[in-house]
Amino acid sequence: MSLEPRQRIQKAIESSEGPALVAFLTAGFPAPKRFLDDLRTIAEVADAVEIGVPFSDPMADGVTIQRSSRAAIEQGVTLRWILDELARRDFELGAPVLLMSYLNPLLALGYESLASRAVEAGVDGFIVPDLPYEESEPLKSALDARGLALVQLVTPATPRERLRALTAASSGFVYAVTRTGTTGAGGLPAELADYLGAVKAASDIPVCAGFGVRERAHVELIGRHVDGVIVGSALVEVLERGEDPAAFLRSLRASA
């Protein structure tokens, strides 16, 4: 029997040798016509891919993703465009894909239509940074009905007694934000081990950690505690500079 989309994500993370690599790119950045090629290349190296849906008010993002989002919007990239592009592709992706979107574009499309179009486009799940657990029920039930994942985020500011509820509500994997703040800034906090250990202990599904991951040392450090690492702004900057995303991702993965 074929796996549900959310199970596909979980299995992809679990079956990675060493820490799984989850790669983020802003859809259509730096150029819309490169989107499918970049995605294909990245999905060959990464274990899962997050496609950023550009939003006008990316309030949880730092300067890199603010810049890439704005550039993508200016070139006409929208949620509908992304779903259309994904649906028209004539190749299989080497990894499951998730859309990372602020809530309003999803609301504007309508949750039912979103879920059915996501399935048609081969999307496996969603990450919604401005949708906390308490408000997530309407979207979650629309996605659940199609076996799509809604990945829950936890952060160092999440009270320990709250962790269990969040990890239990998550599907695909749990997204452990490494530190308070926006995406992009480099460096990992000193108390990382304790925090990631607590998230891992509270979760029945894989945990991937992101925010501030830029180099192999970060991957190795995080990989000691959880199942995967998420690399976002650093990869967007690689694409922005016109460098090879696959080579960058491999450099993160290669064991020393």
Binding site: L103, L131, P132, E134, A157
Partner: peptide, 19 residues
């Protein structure tokens, strides 16, 4: 739930929920 009928709520990143 912080709502006035259907309106209101708390749509903030998880980092701010405790705050």
């Amino acid at each position: 739930a912080g709502r006035f009928g259907p309106f209101g709520g708390r749509y903030v990143p998880e980092t701010l929920m405790a705050a």
